[in-house]
């Protein structure tokens, strides 16, 4: 179904991996003569993604296109830089989206079902001015659509039929973009074992590292203020503290949000327990147990993070969001940013 030209366009597909296997190339071959173009292309993919957030198509040599992709991935694994991974995954997936949206429906269907295991079928349904080419299985639809914020992606604003969601060709490509981004991000993640790196790759790695610092800045030194800054807390958290303080009954979700927020900004457990004291159903033993649980000192040892803003909206915990709120997706990012701004102001004054 797919040609080698297709694999050059979509080197993250399962078929591309199979193709590489038939070639039988290994990392060490990269240093041999004749492989320079691959190494060059692998670097240019990364350089362009880091500098401009895009990866341009370059289909002169299909083999180079296909082979350079895993080399780019390997280079990223070696840098261990999450910010670069994210940026690269986004750039590659955007490139794929631009190509996918112009593909005939049967090719999109093939890629979605064979490489990503989607339940997908063809249809031809017209409504108003739009043509829906596909029905996508609801689970595959949702696992990607929940990352997209526009209201049109919400199920309630879609046409559904017996567990399938109707999508246009462009929408199917957009959902695949999310799938691709996730795949590339995962593939460039930490590995338990790494091959020995030939010298030629070492040189490229250094230049990629330089580019990361150049375009994304030095790895963030600044994390969080050492003591809690109440002024930097988002409106929802300040509201929860106030409600508890006057003894109002705060629902479970609110309590969990507050405790997980405070645990994550490094508050002392004692302080957190004290905050809950005015609650009418306060039990010190219970509260301490739960705070310790959230902090990862009990149970499975997982430290819980603060729920996302969308979740807080669903459960009615979000309270009078301000301007900064519209730029963040988690109360912790609000705190990080505001704290940074506030401490800059203090230093500046």
């Amino acid at each position: 179904m797919l040609t080698r030209a297709d694999l050059a366009k979509y080197p993250f597909l399962n078929e591309a991996t199979d193709y590489l296997r038939t070639l039988g190339v290994s990392v060490n071959d990269i240093s041999s003569a004749g492989y320079e173009p691959i190494l060059e292309r692998a670097e240019s993919r990364l350089q362009e993604a880091l500098a401009k957030g895009i990866v341009s198509g370059d289909f002169l040599d299909e083999k180079v296109e296909i082979l350079s992709f895993p080399v780019s991935n390997l280079l990223l694994v070696l840098t261990g830089e999450d910010r670069a991974r994210r940026r690269y995954a986004l750039a590659e997936s955007k490139r794929a989206y631009e190509l996918l949206r112009h593909e005939p429906p049967e090719k999109l269907e093939h890629i979605a079902s064979t490489s990503f295991g989607w339940k997908i079928r063809r249809t031809n349904y017209q409504q108003d001015n739009r043509v829906f080419d596909f029905q996508v299985g609801i689970v595959d639809y949702l696992s990607n659509s929940v990352k997209l914020k526009e209201p049109r992606w919400k199920l309630v604003n879609r046409i559904l039929d017996a567990g399938y969601v109707y999508t246009t060709r462009d929408e199917a490509a957009r959902l695949l973009e999310e799938e691709i981004r996730e795949r590339i991000f995962t593939r460039t993640g930490p590995k338990s074992s790494l091959p020995d790196i030939p010298d030629s790759l070492e040189v490229v790695l250094e230049s990629v590292k330089t580019a990361i610092t150049k375009y994304l800045g030095a790895p963030a030194q600044y994390e969080l203020p050492r003591t809690a800054m109440p002024k930097a807390m988002p409106p929802c958290i300040q509201h929860l503290i106030k409600e508890l303080d006057v003894g109002k009954n705060v629902q479970h979700m609110g309590r969990f949000t507050l405790a997980s927020f405070l645990v994550n900004i490094g508050s002392e457990e004692e302080e957190i327990v004290r905050l809950f004291k005015p609650a009418s159903d306060f039990s010190e033993r219970m509260t301490r147990y739960q705070v310790e649980h959230i902090a990862g000192k009990r149970g499975g040892g997982t430290k819980y993070t603060c729920p996302m803003c969308t979740t807080l909206k669903t459960h009615g915990v979000c309270y009078k969001p301000d301007e900064l709120c519209s730029t963040i997706r988690n109360p912790l990012s609000y705190y990080k940013r505001k704290a940074r701004n506030l401490s800059k102001e203090i230093k500046g004054a």
């Binding site: 689970v139 949702l142 659509s145 929940v146 919400k154």
Partner: peptide
Amino acid sequence: VLTEDGRKEIVDY
């Protein structure tokens, strides 16, 4: 197999 986000979408629907 739906995640929490996915379930929220079903509820909203």
